[in-house]
Write a protein that binds this DNA or RNA. Sequence first.
DNA 1: AACTATTGTATCATTAAGTGATATATCGTA
DNA 2: TACGATATATCACTTAATGATACAATAGTT
Lengths: 107, 107
Amino acid sequence: MPRGKSLDENQLTDSMYYILVCLLEPMHGYGIKQRIYEESEGKIEIGPASLYTILKKLQTRGLITLLPDEERRKTYQISESGKALLKQDIKRRIQLAEAGKRVLEKL
Amino acid sequence: MPRGKSLDENQLTDSMYYILVCLLEPMHGYGIKQRIYEESEGKIEIGPASLYTILKKLQTRGLITLLPDEERRKTYQISESGKALLKQDIKRRIQLAEAGKRVLEKL
DNA sequence: AACTATTGTATCATTAAGTGATATATCGTA
DNA sequence: TACGATATATCACTTAATGATACAATAGTT
C-alpha cells in the first residue's frame, strides 16, 4: 500500500479498514484506538498520529461523518458511501483470503 | 500501506504477497509481472519500478533466492523463510476476512 | 538488412501512507 | 493539587510504491 493511492483506487489500507469497521457504530477517536487495541488483544495499536490523520482523510472523502457537537470529543460515524466502500473492500479481502487458502495447500 | 514497516513487523504488503505467491515456482521478474496481470484478469498491474524494487528487498531479506545464472533473466524462487512468512500472512489475511464476513451482516 | 514489438532489467525523482515524538488541554480521583 | 487517563492535534521523518525513463537483447516481419 504507499503503496498506491488506496482510496483513489477504492481500496482500504488495513488501518482505514479497522477504523471504518469501528465506526459502524458512533465512536470518537480515542475510543476507536482503544477498541482496536482490545479487539486485537493488544496486537494492533494505532498511534495518535495515524489515527487523527486517517480520520481526517476519511472525513474529507465523505466516508465518515462528524456527529454534532460534544465538546471534548469528536464523535464520528460511517456514512453510506463509507459502508459501500467497506463492503466492497471486505469482498476483496475475502477473495484474497480464498486464493490464499488454495496456496496454503502447496506449503 | 506506506504504511508501516511491513517486513519488520512480519507483514506482507499486497504487492509482496502477490510476488511471493508467484515464486512458489521459479520465475523471473518479467514473468511475475505477466503472471499477476493474467491471473488477476488485468486488474492488478505491477510496474517495473515496483517489481524490481520489491524483488531486491525480498532477496535482501532472504525471503527469495536468486537461482544460478541464466544470462538475460534473473530467476528467483521463494525460500523456506519466505514460505514460512507467506503462510503466516495468509493466515492473517484469512482471519481479517473472517472478521469481515461477520461485519458484512451488519451492512 | 532494417524496422518494430516484445522481452527483460534497472534506477531516479516523486508521491502517498504511516508513525514517533511531542504538545496541549481536560477529567477523575486520591 | 498532583497524577494518570482521556482526548485531540501536528511536525518531521521513514518506508512503500510508482511514473517516467533508460537501455539492451531477442523475435518476428517486411
